[in-house]
Nucleic acid binder design. Structure first.
Lengths: 237, 237
DNA sequence: GCATATTTGTCCGTATGTATA
DNA sequence: CTATACATACGGACAAATATG
């Protein structure tokens, strides 16, 4: 009865039951979170307790704790007596995500102290995105774009707001995995990210806020359009 | 060794293991959340797996799932191999909570569609607070005040923003339980809540936003002052 | 500093309820 | 309707860490 090796899923750090600083459930959650973020587990896919438990060599109780964590992060949905599934966002969820982003990101820009503003993190994210684009790694462009907006929100200096944005942007990744035309989705925002950065550098809060609002409205509109099509294809092929 | 009856904690709905629509762990979490919100479990108190498990007649595994849920809501903190404790907020947490509130609540007002604005929920919360004050139930004033701000944020129409605010205001309750001068803390805001409501009724977004910003700054300042004293008393008596 | 008791961390086996073929 | 597969929840067990004397 050789337990399936966890190699395919990345596996846990070691055999020892407890020596890492974090609990087993959290380490399992970290692994699963990565696999979801990178699309190894597709939205809609069911995550079997037994299969994954064997693959990672953890008990069902431990695995269930990990599932709970990810469910609370809205990456998994839990259906009573049916199990957990990778979340499939509704179009309304996408709209709510953008409603939240617009509210918060614009408020952050509006409430900035300064100028000057500490834009180092933003600069780094922008250039990473540009480099990824030159190399044709569109998934990297997507990741850099997400980092850009996280760095933007980080300017507000609030841990709770940061965490909200982290979660919201992680959800957004689920959408990207379904539509999966990374280039068409993300390339247009490379220049717009740099524009936002330069606008902040110039110290123009109001202009940046307006620019950002339009940016998010455009992004939402386009994404909803594409996503609605993709979801429709999926439910009625 | 009769298992301690769950009467003291409120107990579960019934004996049956599964007939309600929610899982046992969630129902347990609901009970514990209420007890924390009302101050039955004080900040800093340790929640024993065995004691509470017996009192609510659930297994340790189930109880641990409930703990996970509440830990993720930041109402409990989990210390490895030591157990879970009711969260004790640092002064910096209070400041971060207010930073978040100011960012979001003001952004909500700023972004309102209208006028007119649908202020029915706000009206209800305000009058409930006024009634509680007339009856001298200061804990009720606190609850109504929290409802007022939740209703305010609800005007943005975003589920994710609502949930963030729900969590943030639940954390804030932990602070109130430590300082516990409910009247001094909440009474001043009865009139200010009504002023905000009337300002919204008049359709003056900008004026309301300014008023709200000052309101939150005042509230933060006073609460931090009182809370810093209470925490200092607690650590060095 | 040491030995002991308590509590948590993890896993397993099993009985029961629920959904689906 | 029955059968199967799976999640739910329980109780017990032992290891590991912490708290107590």
């Amino acid at each position: 009865m050789g337990t399936t090796s966890g190699a395919e899923l990345g596996g846990l750090a070691d055999d020892r039951p407890l020596l890492g600083r974090t609990s087993t459930a959290e380490r399992v959650a970290d692994i699963l979170r990565s696999r979801i973020a990178e699309g190894y587990f597709q939205p809609g896919e069911r995550l079997s307790e037994e299969t994954i438990g064997k693959a990672l060599a953890v008990s069902r109780n431990t695995l269930r704790e990990a599932f709970r964590l990810l469910t609370h992060e809205r990456l998994l949905v839990h259906e009573l007596n049916r199990g957990v599934f990778v979340r499939v966002l509704a179009v309304e969820d996408v709209e709510d995500i953008y409603r939240t982003r617009r509210l918060i990101e614009c408020a952050v820009v509006r409430g900035l102290d300064g100028p000057p503003f500490p834009v180092d993190g933003l600069e780094k994210a922008v250039s990473r995105g540009e480099r990824a684009a030159r190399e044709g790694i569109w998934k990297g462009v997507s990741t850099a774009n997400i980092h850009f907006h996280r760095e933007l929100v980080a300017l507000a200096g609030s841990a709770r707001t940061d965490e909200l944005m982290r979660g919201v942007l992680a959800e957004l990744r689920l959408v990207f995995h379904v539509v999966d035309d990374p280039r068409g989705l993300h390339e247009p925002y490379l220049v717009r990210n740099r524009q936002l950065l330069e606008s902040l550098r110039s110290g123009d809060r109001e202009g940046t806020e307006r620019m950002l609002a339009k940016y998010l409205d455009d992004s939402r509109e386009r994404l909803v359009e594409v996503y609605a099509g993709a979801v429709a294809d999926d439910t009625a092929p």
